[in-house]
């Protein structure tokens, strides 16, 4: 049997509102203008890039081959583990505070409007300050090493995870909460028995995602003196030992890929679980 072809029909011209057209042009002009300003302000120069290319080549020539001596590899692996532990503690130690703030910052359960506003402001502040800045502050306060790195990650991560968790809680099915509230349960009981259990897989998924991000951040924190492999990378650059630097980078690459895979696998096992 042949496929039946529908008879052709003329497509009427799309009605165009002149206002939408004008607005479209204005938006395009603004986008272009903003890019011109940004281009100038950031000193973008292809000439500099072309000249610098030679320097980059020298740099690579010195870095390759990487220094694969066992002593260095051991040192690198140990420091990578420290980076991992900073990322781990920076994530898990921020759980209690994130949870409390998330519950207060979820519109659906927050006890009062002003509590919601204040918690949201605290979370925004913690999020707005980059973890590197927190690290510089804590390094000044408690000295060089992994500890200020952990503190910095906790401070910033509470801001991010608190907000993500609050939004997940707000999207939770309100049904069970309504049922328990009508049964006379208190606010904390409703959170503990209706909201949190409904969204637990999502909360854990976000926790793993943050762990992944925090391990990578803790590498950067090391560059400003907060311990771990970042510290070694910074050191080797300052001593012009680029072959050692490349070793550290390769080792940390293995670590980061491993953490990424692990967190992806666990998250995939969490999500198909339909509630």
């Amino acid at each position: 049997m042949s496929v039946l072809e529908a008879p052709r029909a003329k497509v009427p011209p799309k009605p165009r509102n002149p206002r939408t057209v004008v607005v479209g042009w204005i938006i395009a002009a603004v986008v272009v203008a903003v890019h011109v300003i940004a281009w100038r302000a950031t000193d973008i120069s292809f000439a500099a890039l072309a000249e610098g290319w030679a320097g980059m080549a020298d740099f690579l020539a010195e870095a390759i081959p990487p220094d694969l001596s066992p002593d260095l590899l051991l040192e690198s692996a140990e420091a990578s583990l420290v980076t991992l532990w900073i990322g781990l503690l920076g994530t898990t130690l921020s759980v209690p505070l994130s949870l409390i703030l998330a519950l207060l910052a979820a519109r659906t359960i927050s006890p009062a409007g002003w509590v919601y506003q204040v918690t949201r402001a605290i979370l925004s502040f913690l999020r707005a300050v980059p973890d590197v800045v927190f690290a510089l502050i804590f390094v000044t306060a408690v000295g060089l090493g992994p500890f200020p790195g952990v503190l910095a990650l906790v401070a910033h991560n509470v801001g991010v995870m608190g907000k993500l968790w609050a939004e997940t809680l707000e999207e939770a099915d309100p049904g069970p909460a309504t049922a328990l509230r009508s049964a006379g349960a208190g606010r904390i009981q409703v959170a503990a028995h209706a909201l949190l259990p409904s969204v637990l897989p999502q909360l854990v998924g976000l926790l793993l995602y943050r762990f992944d991000v925090n391990v990578r951040s803790s590498l950067v924190l090391g560059l400003v003196g907060a311990g771990g492999i970042g510290f070694l990378i910074n050191q080797s650059i300052q001593l012009f030992q680029f072959d050692q630097m490349l070793t550290h980078i390769l080792v940390v690459l293995v670590l980061i890929i491993a953490v990424d895979r692990l967190s992806a696998v666990v998250r995939r096992r969490l999500t198909p679980e339909a509630a």
Binding site: G175, P176, T178, A179, S182, A183, H193, A194, P197, S198, L200, P201, E273, A275
Partner: peptide, 14 residues
């Protein structure tokens, strides 16, 4: 009073 709803409102994961 105790309520029973049309949409059942249990926590499915518990």
């Amino acid at each position: 009073t105790a309520l029973v709803f049309q949409k059942i409102h249990l926590v499915g994961r518990r």
